[in-house]
Amino acid sequence: MTAAAYTSNRSSGLRDFIPRLPAGVWSLSGFSLLWFGGIVLPLLAIIVVSFLQGRGLKINFDPTILQYKRFFSYGGGEMLARSVRIAGTVTMIELLLAFPFALWLAKGCKNNTVRLLTFTALTVPFFLSPAARVIVWRSVFGINGVVNQILLGVGIVDEPVLWLIFSEFSVHFGFIGAFFPTMVWPIFLSVSLIDNDFLEASGDLGASRLRTLLHIILPLALPGIVAGFVFTFIPMLGDAVVASHMGGNNVLMLAAQVQSLIGVSNFLVAAALAAVVLAIMLAFQVLLWLALKPVGGLAGVFASLRR
Protein backbone atom coordinates (compact mmCIF):
# COMPACT_ATOMS: atom_id res chain seq x y z
CA MET A 1 0.00 0.00 0.00
CA THR A 2 1.39 3.41 -0.97
CA ALA A 3 1.59 6.26 1.51
CA ALA A 4 -1.05 8.18 -0.46
CA ALA A 5 -3.46 5.26 -0.40
CA TYR A 6 -2.81 4.75 3.31
CA THR A 7 -3.56 8.42 3.99
CA SER A 8 -6.69 8.21 1.87
CA ASN A 9 -7.90 5.10 3.68
CA ARG A 10 -7.45 6.82 7.05
CA SER A 11 -10.17 9.33 6.13
CA SER A 12 -13.37 8.05 7.61
CA GLY A 13 -16.38 9.05 9.65
CA LEU A 14 -17.69 12.62 9.40
CA ARG A 15 -15.05 13.67 6.87
CA ASP A 16 -16.48 11.28 4.29
CA PHE A 17 -19.74 13.17 4.36
CA ILE A 18 -18.23 16.63 3.95
CA PRO A 19 -17.96 17.61 0.28
CA ARG A 20 -14.37 18.21 -0.84
CA LEU A 21 -14.59 21.83 -1.92
CA PRO A 22 -11.90 24.48 -2.30
CA ALA A 23 -11.15 26.57 0.81
CA GLY A 24 -12.56 29.70 -0.88
CA VAL A 25 -15.94 28.05 -1.33
CA TRP A 26 -15.95 26.98 2.32
CA SER A 27 -15.15 30.56 3.41
CA LEU A 28 -17.90 31.92 1.20
CA SER A 29 -20.40 29.39 2.51
CA GLY A 30 -19.37 30.13 6.07
CA PHE A 31 -19.80 33.86 5.66
CA SER A 32 -23.11 33.34 3.86
CA LEU A 33 -24.32 31.17 6.71
CA LEU A 34 -23.20 33.73 9.30
CA TRP A 35 -24.84 36.51 7.31
CA PHE A 36 -28.06 34.55 7.01
CA GLY A 37 -28.12 33.57 10.68
CA GLY A 38 -26.92 36.90 12.05
CA ILE A 39 -28.65 39.37 9.74
CA VAL A 40 -31.37 37.86 7.58
CA LEU A 41 -33.03 35.63 10.19
CA PRO A 42 -33.42 38.40 12.80
CA LEU A 43 -34.85 40.71 10.12
CA LEU A 44 -37.32 38.02 9.07
CA ALA A 45 -38.22 37.51 12.74
CA ILE A 46 -38.89 41.24 13.11
CA ILE A 47 -41.20 41.18 10.10
CA VAL A 48 -43.08 38.16 11.45
CA VAL A 49 -43.40 39.75 14.93
CA SER A 50 -44.77 42.96 13.39
CA PHE A 51 -47.82 41.01 12.24
CA LEU A 52 -48.61 39.51 15.66
CA GLN A 53 -50.69 40.65 18.61
CA GLY A 54 -49.82 40.87 22.28
CA ARG A 55 -48.71 43.08 25.10
CA GLY A 56 -45.24 43.47 26.58
CA LEU A 57 -43.47 40.14 26.55
CA LYS A 58 -46.70 38.17 26.01
CA ILE A 59 -47.36 37.52 22.35
CA ASN A 60 -50.05 35.46 20.68
CA PHE A 61 -49.83 34.21 17.14
CA ASP A 62 -52.94 35.68 15.48
CA PRO A 63 -51.84 37.52 12.32
CA THR A 64 -52.91 41.15 12.19
CA ILE A 65 -51.93 44.51 10.70
CA LEU A 66 -53.00 46.28 13.90
CA GLN A 67 -49.44 47.30 14.83
CA TYR A 68 -49.00 49.12 11.51
CA LYS A 69 -52.32 50.91 11.98
CA ARG A 70 -51.25 51.95 15.49
CA PHE A 71 -47.86 53.15 14.33
CA PHE A 72 -49.31 55.40 11.63
CA SER A 73 -52.19 56.65 13.81
CA TYR A 74 -49.69 57.97 16.41
CA GLY A 75 -47.83 60.13 13.90
CA GLY A 76 -45.31 57.50 12.81
CA GLY A 77 -45.65 58.45 9.13
CA GLU A 78 -44.76 62.09 9.81
CA MET A 79 -41.85 61.00 11.97
CA LEU A 80 -40.45 58.74 9.25
CA ALA A 81 -40.86 61.42 6.57
CA ARG A 82 -39.13 63.92 8.85
CA SER A 83 -36.27 61.51 9.62
CA VAL A 84 -35.64 60.73 5.95
CA ARG A 85 -35.93 64.39 4.96
CA ILE A 86 -33.46 65.60 7.60
CA ALA A 87 -30.99 62.74 7.04
CA GLY A 88 -31.21 63.20 3.25
CA THR A 89 -30.71 66.97 3.41
CA VAL A 90 -27.76 66.74 5.77
CA THR A 91 -26.15 63.97 3.68
CA MET A 92 -26.28 66.20 0.59
CA ILE A 93 -24.82 69.13 2.56
CA GLU A 94 -22.08 66.82 3.86
CA LEU A 95 -21.28 65.72 0.32
CA LEU A 96 -20.97 69.33 -0.88
CA LEU A 97 -18.69 70.17 2.06
CA ALA A 98 -16.71 66.94 2.21
CA PHE A 99 -15.85 66.48 -1.48
CA PRO A 100 -13.70 69.59 -1.91
CA PHE A 101 -12.19 69.02 1.52
CA ALA A 102 -11.29 65.40 0.73
CA LEU A 103 -9.95 66.44 -2.68
CA TRP A 104 -7.68 69.01 -1.07
CA LEU A 105 -6.57 66.53 1.59
CA ALA A 106 -5.79 63.81 -0.95
CA LYS A 107 -4.30 65.81 -3.80
CA GLY A 108 -3.89 69.42 -2.77
CA CYS A 109 -2.23 69.19 0.62
CA LYS A 110 1.50 68.54 0.18
CA ASN A 111 2.55 69.17 3.76
CA ASN A 112 2.58 65.92 5.75
CA THR A 113 2.33 67.71 9.10
CA VAL A 114 -0.80 69.55 8.01
CA ARG A 115 -2.22 66.31 6.67
CA LEU A 116 -1.46 64.47 9.91
CA LEU A 117 -3.04 67.23 11.98
CA THR A 118 -6.10 67.13 9.75
CA PHE A 119 -6.37 63.36 10.14
CA THR A 120 -6.17 63.80 13.91
CA ALA A 121 -8.80 66.52 13.89
CA LEU A 122 -11.12 64.21 11.95
CA THR A 123 -10.48 61.28 14.27
CA VAL A 124 -10.47 62.91 17.70
CA PRO A 125 -14.27 63.43 17.88
CA PHE A 126 -14.72 59.65 17.74
CA PHE A 127 -12.91 59.31 21.05
CA LEU A 128 -15.60 61.42 22.73
CA SER A 129 -19.04 60.15 23.60
CA PRO A 130 -21.66 61.09 20.99
CA ALA A 131 -23.40 63.30 23.55
CA ALA A 132 -20.19 65.16 24.41
CA ARG A 133 -19.64 65.83 20.71
CA VAL A 134 -22.88 67.78 20.35
CA ILE A 135 -23.63 69.11 23.83
CA VAL A 136 -21.05 71.87 23.40
CA TRP A 137 -23.25 73.48 20.75
CA ARG A 138 -25.87 74.23 23.40
CA SER A 139 -23.62 76.82 24.99
CA VAL A 140 -22.94 78.29 21.57
CA PHE A 141 -26.53 78.45 20.29
CA GLY A 142 -28.44 78.65 23.59
CA ILE A 143 -30.56 81.55 24.72
CA ASN A 144 -27.55 82.99 26.58
CA GLY A 145 -25.06 81.42 24.19
CA VAL A 146 -22.19 82.97 22.31
CA VAL A 147 -24.13 83.56 19.09
CA ASN A 148 -27.04 85.26 20.83
CA GLN A 149 -24.64 87.38 22.89
CA ILE A 150 -22.95 88.56 19.71
CA LEU A 151 -26.24 89.22 17.90
CA LEU A 152 -27.56 91.18 20.86
CA GLY A 153 -24.25 92.99 21.40
CA VAL A 154 -23.99 94.09 17.78
CA GLY A 155 -27.64 95.13 17.84
CA ILE A 156 -28.82 92.85 15.04
CA VAL A 157 -31.61 91.54 17.28
CA ASP A 158 -33.42 92.95 20.31
CA GLU A 159 -34.22 89.59 21.87
CA PRO A 160 -32.38 86.26 21.83
CA VAL A 161 -33.04 84.14 18.75
CA LEU A 162 -34.83 81.04 20.02
CA TRP A 163 -34.68 78.81 16.94
CA LEU A 164 -30.91 78.47 17.14
CA ILE A 165 -31.40 75.54 19.52
CA PHE A 166 -34.15 72.93 20.11
CA SER A 167 -35.28 73.28 16.50
CA GLU A 168 -34.85 71.58 13.12
CA PHE A 169 -32.09 74.07 12.35
CA SER A 170 -30.05 72.96 15.35
CA VAL A 171 -30.65 69.28 14.54
CA HIS A 172 -29.33 69.84 11.00
CA PHE A 173 -26.33 71.69 12.38
CA GLY A 174 -25.60 69.02 14.99
CA PHE A 175 -25.67 66.30 12.35
CA ILE A 176 -23.33 68.19 10.01
CA GLY A 177 -20.59 68.33 12.63
CA ALA A 178 -21.09 64.80 13.89
CA PHE A 179 -21.14 63.09 10.48
CA PHE A 180 -18.58 65.13 8.53
CA PRO A 181 -15.75 62.58 9.05
CA THR A 182 -17.89 59.66 7.85
CA MET A 183 -18.33 61.40 4.51
CA VAL A 184 -14.76 62.69 4.22
CA TRP A 185 -12.91 59.42 4.87
CA PRO A 186 -14.32 57.24 2.06
CA ILE A 187 -14.05 60.08 -0.48
CA PHE A 188 -10.50 60.82 0.65
CA LEU A 189 -9.52 57.17 0.19
CA SER A 190 -11.04 56.87 -3.28
CA VAL A 191 -9.50 60.17 -4.44
CA SER A 192 -6.13 59.10 -3.00
CA LEU A 193 -6.22 56.02 -5.21
CA ILE A 194 -6.54 58.11 -8.41
CA ASP A 195 -3.19 57.97 -10.18
CA ASN A 196 -1.68 61.45 -10.55
CA ASP A 197 -0.62 60.47 -14.09
CA PHE A 198 -4.29 60.52 -15.13
CA LEU A 199 -4.69 64.07 -13.88
CA GLU A 200 -1.48 65.22 -15.54
CA ALA A 201 -2.44 63.48 -18.80
CA SER A 202 -5.79 65.20 -18.74
CA GLY A 203 -4.09 68.57 -18.33
CA ASP A 204 -1.54 67.77 -21.04
CA LEU A 205 -4.38 66.98 -23.43
CA GLY A 206 -5.83 70.44 -22.84
CA ALA A 207 -8.63 69.70 -20.42
CA SER A 208 -9.54 72.51 -18.06
CA ARG A 209 -9.50 71.88 -14.29
CA LEU A 210 -13.28 71.74 -14.27
CA ARG A 211 -13.32 69.21 -17.12
CA THR A 212 -10.71 67.08 -15.31
CA LEU A 213 -12.81 67.24 -12.17
CA LEU A 214 -16.02 66.26 -13.94
CA HIS A 215 -14.65 63.62 -16.31
CA ILE A 216 -11.70 62.10 -14.46
CA ILE A 217 -11.88 62.73 -10.71
CA LEU A 218 -15.62 62.49 -10.15
CA PRO A 219 -16.17 59.14 -11.92
CA LEU A 220 -13.11 57.61 -10.26
CA ALA A 221 -14.17 58.96 -6.84
CA LEU A 222 -17.65 57.50 -7.19
CA PRO A 223 -16.94 54.44 -4.98
CA GLY A 224 -15.99 56.78 -2.13
CA ILE A 225 -19.00 59.00 -2.74
CA VAL A 226 -21.36 56.00 -2.65
CA ALA A 227 -19.65 54.62 0.46
CA GLY A 228 -19.72 58.05 2.12
CA PHE A 229 -23.42 58.35 1.36
CA VAL A 230 -24.11 54.96 2.93
CA PHE A 231 -21.89 55.56 5.99
CA THR A 232 -23.47 58.97 6.58
CA PHE A 233 -27.13 58.64 5.67
CA ILE A 234 -27.90 55.31 7.34
CA PRO A 235 -26.22 55.89 10.74
CA MET A 236 -27.78 59.35 10.80
CA LEU A 237 -31.23 57.80 10.47
CA GLY A 238 -30.42 55.69 13.53
CA ASP A 239 -28.80 58.44 15.59
CA ALA A 240 -30.57 59.08 18.91
CA VAL A 241 -28.21 61.66 20.35
CA VAL A 242 -28.28 64.69 18.07
CA ALA A 243 -32.05 64.94 17.68
CA SER A 244 -32.51 64.62 21.42
CA HIS A 245 -29.76 67.00 22.58
CA MET A 246 -30.00 69.57 19.82
CA GLY A 247 -33.70 69.21 19.05
CA GLY A 248 -34.89 68.99 22.66
CA ASN A 249 -37.31 66.29 21.51
CA ASN A 250 -39.18 68.93 19.54
CA VAL A 251 -37.89 67.09 16.48
CA LEU A 252 -38.69 63.43 17.01
CA MET A 253 -36.68 61.12 14.77
CA LEU A 254 -36.49 57.42 14.12
CA ALA A 255 -34.12 56.29 16.89
CA ALA A 256 -35.91 58.27 19.59
CA GLN A 257 -39.19 56.74 18.45
CA VAL A 258 -37.74 53.23 18.72
CA GLN A 259 -36.42 54.02 22.23
CA SER A 260 -39.80 55.35 23.21
CA LEU A 261 -41.56 52.17 22.05
CA ILE A 262 -39.03 49.88 23.71
CA GLY A 263 -39.24 51.95 26.90
CA VAL A 264 -42.85 50.87 27.40
CA SER A 265 -42.36 47.28 26.14
CA ASN A 266 -44.26 48.08 22.94
CA PHE A 267 -42.17 45.59 20.97
CA LEU A 268 -44.82 44.82 18.37
CA VAL A 269 -45.21 48.42 17.15
CA ALA A 270 -41.40 48.73 17.33
CA ALA A 271 -41.23 45.70 15.02
CA ALA A 272 -43.75 47.31 12.65
CA LEU A 273 -41.61 50.45 12.61
CA ALA A 274 -38.49 48.39 11.88
CA ALA A 275 -40.30 46.63 9.03
CA VAL A 276 -41.34 49.97 7.53
CA VAL A 277 -37.75 51.22 7.78
CA LEU A 278 -36.56 48.05 6.09
CA ALA A 279 -39.01 48.68 3.25
CA ILE A 280 -37.70 52.25 2.93
CA MET A 281 -34.12 50.96 2.81
CA LEU A 282 -35.07 48.50 0.06
CA ALA A 283 -36.71 51.34 -1.85
CA PHE A 284 -33.48 53.34 -1.53
CA GLN A 285 -31.53 50.35 -2.86
CA VAL A 286 -33.76 50.31 -5.92
CA LEU A 287 -33.31 54.07 -6.38
CA LEU A 288 -29.54 53.70 -6.03
CA TRP A 289 -29.55 50.88 -8.55
CA LEU A 290 -31.54 53.00 -11.01
CA ALA A 291 -29.31 56.02 -10.44
CA LEU A 292 -26.12 54.03 -11.02
CA LYS A 293 -27.43 52.09 -14.01
CA PRO A 294 -25.97 54.56 -16.57
CA VAL A 295 -22.46 53.97 -15.17
CA GLY A 296 -22.79 50.18 -15.12
CA GLY A 297 -24.47 49.75 -11.75
CA LEU A 298 -22.67 49.24 -8.46
CA ALA A 299 -20.18 46.85 -10.10
CA GLY A 300 -19.34 49.54 -12.63
CA VAL A 301 -18.79 52.10 -9.88
CA PHE A 302 -16.36 49.92 -8.00
CA ALA A 303 -14.61 48.74 -11.16
CA SER A 304 -12.33 51.78 -10.86
CA LEU A 305 -10.86 50.24 -7.70
CA ARG A 306 -9.57 47.26 -9.71
CA ARG A 307 -7.14 49.37 -11.69
Binding site: G75, M79, L252, S265, V269
Partner: peptide, 13 residues
Amino acid sequence: LQEMQAQMDRVLN
Protein backbone atom coordinates in the same frame (compact mmCIF):
# COMPACT_ATOMS: atom_id res chain seq x y z
CA LEU B 1 -49.12 52.40 29.58
CA GLN B 2 -48.53 51.82 25.86
CA GLU B 3 -51.48 53.95 24.79
CA MET B 4 -50.31 56.76 27.08
CA GLN B 5 -46.79 56.70 25.65
CA ALA B 6 -48.22 56.54 22.12
CA GLN B 7 -50.22 59.70 22.82
CA MET B 8 -47.11 61.39 24.21
CA ASP B 9 -45.31 60.40 21.01
CA ARG B 10 -48.13 62.08 19.10
CA VAL B 11 -47.38 65.27 21.08
CA LEU B 12 -43.67 65.04 20.25
CA ASN B 13 -44.46 64.36 16.60
